[in-house]
Write a protein that binds this DNA or RNA. Sequence first.
RNA 1: GGGCCCGUAGCUCAGUAUGGAUAGAGUGUUGGACUUCUAAUCCAAUGGUCGAGGGAUCGAAGCCCUUCGGGCCCGCCA
Length: 608
Amino acid sequence: MVYDILIRQVRDIIRQSIIHSDIEYAVEPARSGFGDISSNVAFLLSKRLHQSPADVARIIADGCIIPPDSLIDTIRAHPSGYVNAYARWDKLAYMILESSIREGYGSVKTGQSCIIEHTSVNPNKALHIGHARNIIVGDVVSRILRKAGHKVTILNYVDDLGLQVADIVLGFRHFKYDIEPPKGIKFDAYCGDTIYVDTNAQYDKHPELYKMRSDILYNIEQGDTDDARMAKEITRRVLAAQLSTCWKLGASYDILNFESHIVQSGLWSQIFDKLKKMKIATYESEGENAGCWVIRDKVLVRSNGTATYMAKDIPYAAWKMGIIKNPFRYVRYEGQPGNTPLYQTIIHDDGIEMPLKADMVITVIDSRQSNLQEMISNILYEMGGKNYIHLRYEAVTLSEKTAKDMGISTDGKTQMSGRRGIYVSVDSVYDTLYRKAYSETSKRNPDMGTDALHLTSHVLSVATLRYEMIRQDLGRPITFDMDKSTRLDGDTAPYILYAYARACRVLEKVRDFGHADTSCIYGDKELHLLRLLGMYPIIIRDAASNLSPKVVARYCHDLAVAFNAFYESCTIIGSGAHQGGRLYMTRAFGAVMHDALHMLGIDAPHRM
RNA sequence: GGGCCCGUAGCUCAGUAUGGAUAGAGUGUUGGACUUCUAAUCCAAUGGUCGAGGGAUCGAAGCCCUUCGGGCCCGCCA
């Protein structure tokens, strides 16, 4: 890591220049325009020495002795009080470029393992744009952690037992819907848009349906009933349709966990016993929760003996944390693209065993579930499970315009609701993006074949959606607007991919690199690009330790801006003595960008 | 009543973890650059009491307190 070496060297040089070696000063990459490495050491010392930061900085800079073999050229005091170091770019340029194109640049082996759960959509409807944020955030964080050297296992929890499933079974049974969707409609959309919405609309008018629904739910939970068999068929078909959308977005999983298997495995009673024994759960004999088992003031088991939603989450979480015995065996779930095999849990069968162990367990759920997640985390902590992390993000809402376009009249933003059919599906967003991308790509590349056009449009659509879902902070709600959110210019994925494609086209034109003379690299634009390339390992560390996809997204954007500036101002092919070095830069940019985009789950076309 | 998140340019957002230099992008508006390695691009201009007030600090968009505005959560629903 070139920057680590640089920082260490500056720190050593400064330490030898100051007398007070006990203070903890920062040495970090400089803001652009202020050299390469900066330190705040003078600010911290100024008080003790009763002198201004500027004076102290000057004294420190004057006292710096730079070893002859150093990567540092000069150390200067800035009037503001900063001590700034300037690097020997004649040496650094080659070092950065050489490591940039090396396999695994920026990776480290931590040996840490982690489990991450994301997606986990109820299997009764098509995925909407709010789910997309979950899927993409979860997938990108997984990729970041893998890049940062963790062993990552990705889980997707499928609640195939809830009331939402009973709604669908009731719809098919009572309202006699055809089990096959109309031609051209996916099964998940059919269940969600037609059966689920229509059935829910009937409850107010026909209260007797509530009784039917709870009977159906009871039957489903029993397992060996017609309703249970129908529920299983429906949920598996919906899941398959949902997964096809997830896979289309480039997400993949290691394990599918079914709620029905968790129930059948007896995990709940194990956990319940433990909670009782440890006095975490207590029985209320009077008051408003009389007859219930509660944790603090939250009901865990109702007076009729059934478990609440929170209770259902505890055994799964405890299993992920490894604090109860693993009851599951696994069989392959077919169809996942790529090389990662997908397994599903199975009970009472001779599937394979897979031990699960993790130093860190991450659950990706939106912040509306924060209270519940905090409680679960506390309960697990009391049972000895540390490092349960709720990776929260604010939900996605619909813009006023997009809501209006869907026939929903509201003031301001609209929360999505599957029950009421108010949502924008991931598939429809993808289709919109695909049409736009196809039209733009074919316009610019009239000679491109149909297959290539399709592939490029697909890649651009996925990239645009992914970037849109991660470029802002997780703590900020996304207002989805069909027009604004599917733009292909400005701060979007196509901007980044365009820079990459430009680099590819240059490299295609010149096969022979010749001598890469990096001593010719000294222009502002060139050095800026080089600095960013050198900073890549720091970015990965930052993104991983903060579980922050946007850090990588912004880096990709900054890198693209830097390359475009370089590309616009420097001739590459035919630049004489400069050509070798600039080609090397172009190649290094391509390598790092490709790798960084891979962390975002984005493929980069060579032409667009 | 309690808890969490957000407030920075007309609009959408970076920057806040770990206080420090001229507060940055995109978009919008106005003007400019394609005979050239792709104009999904670039350049220039425009645009800011960092919601408000107080405090600690040599120094605050960032830390502490108060306050205003917006969003979300707090069920024997899931």
